[in-house]
Write a protein that binds this DNA or RNA. Structure first.
Lengths: 343, 343
DNA sequence: TTGAAAGCGCTACCAC
DNA sequence: GTGGTAGCGCTTTCAA
């Protein structure tokens, strides 16, 4: 079977305590012994059991990451950022796709608790904020990523979604668009709501609310977005400026436009959100509001790990709120509004 | 602190053995006691420690998945498939991005062993097959995904890469292309080599090897692929038919062609591989060889878990080899060869 | 510098 | 049906 600390100790003719010391580089062991023991561990392919160590009070050095769907490029890129930072700091991460279902979220939360992860990052939409409170009560470090949850006192790293929405609005306005619409995610996704809000606010502020804005919702997948966009752009007075709450929806809109024979950006301008790899490969390349995905992931990990360290001295670390700035990335999917809006 | 089995036992006035039984639904406990204990566990938000359980011989119900880069849509989609199947079967998965570096692979392998995962899936390229043998010796269940490793006796689930390559070749041939090239991944990625091989074999078999085929290598990222494609398509007698070993490289080629003023597919035809979400959002949409990604992931998980079950009776399960079939998905990036090849 | 021993939380076997 | 108890592999005092 697998070698244990006992095997090493026996082989080296020392006690397991000594072996433990050299494993952890603690205590005072003579250089000779240390080298000897190291050699034996190597020879026996000994891998200390992190599980047993965790049982004695050490951390598991494992973090949980909940996202709606790891196959969605945005979350895949986020996961990569989280993983990279975690690895640098000596942690691994368990990734969980929830499909934005509370029931799945809850099951994963319990599972991760049972596995005694050291902290959890939540990048998934949650209807009922209450399902997080048990975690907080047990002082499990939690960080929300790109999610707003005002009711809870929990670490949060977000982008300024309203700013993002307003960036999109300004751009469309500058291009002369007056007939605007928004394709948003279901209302449980709070960040989308904020983006829509920022979009409207910018319009209002500019006094440009010439015509009522259409706001449509669709699920996160391409097909749903395309379908909704097909409906929207298929209408008599279709909008010439369309802001989508993420790149996938924008691509759905792009495809819908194409299918309807509408040229982008000649007939309709489309702006996405996120700036995932997808935005750079579409035709035309997508003008989109870029999230600093890497920073989001890094900060989330850092918040967790800082808390793990501090937690030892300081009982209750205050919930930190980090807000990062999105940026408009201009590519080719948004252009001048058509001179005469196909009336 | 966190409630333990002792807290529950004390609260219920029973022994921990009894509580353990109800947790695991084993043994004979009176319905009344069982309900009572359940109620208490609920009330105290008790989550049994999977770590402690694992230490007593139970599994950890955690699997490891090594891929080059989780932010690459192909691996993200694969990870989703793996995760879904794992969840169905009661396992969670730790995802590790290796960037195809052996050193990273080795560190992750050790880490996962220390965490006592129940099995590992390897979807990453490995130069030195030897770094897997310690795992096999310790009878750690391992499954290779979409990787060939003939030297090792280990479960493998792959697609028929040669068939995939030949599918691409046939298509290009049928479209009348004679000046062909391949953009492949570094040679350590065995699946790419097989694709190239299938491509050449199909050409040879068709007796169509009119002009020597250019074979170029590039790293897996978009930028490198684009750069290499720029060189390739910028040459005097650039190929009119280009087969790329994955979708990202194909997109790099698409972008290179655009930059060079070459129209796709009018001037140059491009075929990708994988059929990730990327293939459907490019312009023109990418003709590509589709992998059954979901099946790959599912089979890999099943192989591991079957071995975990069998392992209890049967000492040495034979290494299974599952080979799935790729399919050509025709979209718009490959068309008739130009009548006169720009000489 | 090193070792003995008391846990960590849980499972499983054996008594009662 | 239920409880006592010996580990699982490791960390960590406390002595020596």
């Amino acid at each position: 079977m697998k070698a244990t600390i006992y095997d090493i100790a026996r082989e080296a003719g020392v006690s397991i305590a000594t072996v433990s010391q050299v494993i952890n580089g603690k205590g005072k062991i003579s250089e000779k012994r240390r080298a000897e023991i190291m050699e034996i561990m190597e020879r026996l392919h000994y891998q200390p059991s992190a599980i047993a160590a965790a049982l004695t009070g050490k951390q598991t050095y494992t973090l949980g990451l909940l996202v709606p769907d790891i196959s969605n490029p945005y979350f895949a890129e986020l996961a990569r950022a989280v993983e990279d930072r975690s690895r640098q700091l000596g942690y691994s991460v368990v990734i969980c796709s929830t499909d934005n279902k509370d029931e799945r979220v809850e099951r994963y939360l319990n599972l991760l608790q049972q596995k005694r992860v050291d902290g959890m990052m939540i990048g998934t939409g949650i209807d009922n904020a209450e399902i997080l409170s048990p975690l907080l009560q047990q002082s499990m470090p939690v960080a929300l990523i790109a999610r707003h949850m005002p009711a809870l006192s929990v670490h949060t790293v977000t982008i300024d979604d309203r700013l993002g929405g307003s960036l999109a609005a300004q751009h469309l306005l500058e291009l002369g668009h007056t007939r605007l619409a928004v394709l948003s995610e279901p209302s449980k996704v709070s960040s989308s709501q904020e983006r829509v809000r920022g979009f409207r606010e910018a319009l209002n502020k500019a006094g440009h609310l010439l015509e009522p804005i259409q706001i449509r919702e669709s699920a996160a997948d391409l097909a749903s977005a395309k379908q909704e966009a097909l409906r929207l752009l298929g209408e008599q007075n279709y909008p010439t400026g369309l802001f989508c709450c993420n790149d996938i929806q924008a691509i759905g809109a792009l495809q819908a436009a194409k299918e309807l024979g509408l040229r982008v950006p000649h007939d309709v301008s489309i702006i996405g959100f996120d700036d995932t790899i997808l935005a750079s490969v579409t035709n035309p390349p997508l003008t989109t509001v870029a999230q600093p995905i890497e920073d989001l992931g890094r900060h989330a990990v850092d918040l967790l790990i800082d808390e793990l360290k501090d937690g030892l001295q300081d009982e209750q670390t205050a919930a930190q709120k980090i807000v990062l700035k999105p940026e408009l990335v201009v590519r080719d999917s948004a252009g001048q509004a058509p001179a005469v809006q196909g009336k």
